[in-house]
Design a protein around this nucleic acid. Sequence first.
DNA 1: CAGTATCCGCGGAGATACTG
DNA 2: CAGTATCTCCGCGGATACTG
Lengths: 126, 126
Amino acid sequence: MVKNSDGKIWIGDCPIRQVLDRFGDKWSILVIELLSHEGKLRFSEIAQTIGDISQKMLTVTLRSLESDGLIIRQFFPEIPPRVEYELSDLGRSLVPHIQQLTSWGQEHMEAIKENRRRFEEKQSKG
Amino acid sequence: MVKNSDGKIWIGDCPIRQVLDRFGDKWSILVIELLSHEGKLRFSEIAQTIGDISQKMLTVTLRSLESDGLIIRQFFPEIPPRVEYELSDLGRSLVPHIQQLTSWGQEHMEAIKENRRRFEEKQSKG
DNA sequence: CAGTATCCGCGGAGATACTG
DNA sequence: CAGTATCTCCGCGGATACTG
């Protein structure tokens, strides 16, 4: 939590926001998780495993992960071309923390859904 | 990582996606972090500390966190009214994992920015 | 003070067509 | 195969005005 002298949170430098800005998108974390499980994968393999990601978004996601040094892209100039993606050391260093969050989700997400259900029920009753 | 029999990730039940869907929004994590540091806060105190959140989004964020049982809302029917928010046990249980991610960010975000800078430079050169 | 109600703009994301 | 290039849509989130 980073505060200014006026007591306000300084959003720009706030580490939480930086992490969320980087990984809060729809696909980055999922791709990292996938590569952490499967090792080295081709573009089409990632697309097929995720299933409901568009070609465009997979390209955008992989390019941004590559640009940030979280994954490594290896291009083989064959015909037809082959491209393989794998996690970098930097990317791998994030995986345990993702798994922490994931296991928290597995443990508590049902309770959250139940809470939400009850809350909505209470609202509708007045 | 949850897969179907066809080898595809089952997005709907995937714990990672559930967590991201819940906490990937702009303000939830930030509010939880804030409450974990400050304990009990009034609506206006949260608004002023964050600084650049709109009244609407703070209302929406607090209401959704309350509905999911992550925070507790206490209303005092005074004039003018007073409302205090604090973390629930469920909300508190998430805090350590957020801090894990945050410290990872503090450790590696500069490297990521540097990687991105170099990547863009390389692209512009050809 | 702590919200609602309403309108609106922007950008993330999908669909489709095309290419080295 | 692994992408680009466009067009488009949707909904998150901001701005503003109002209220118990």
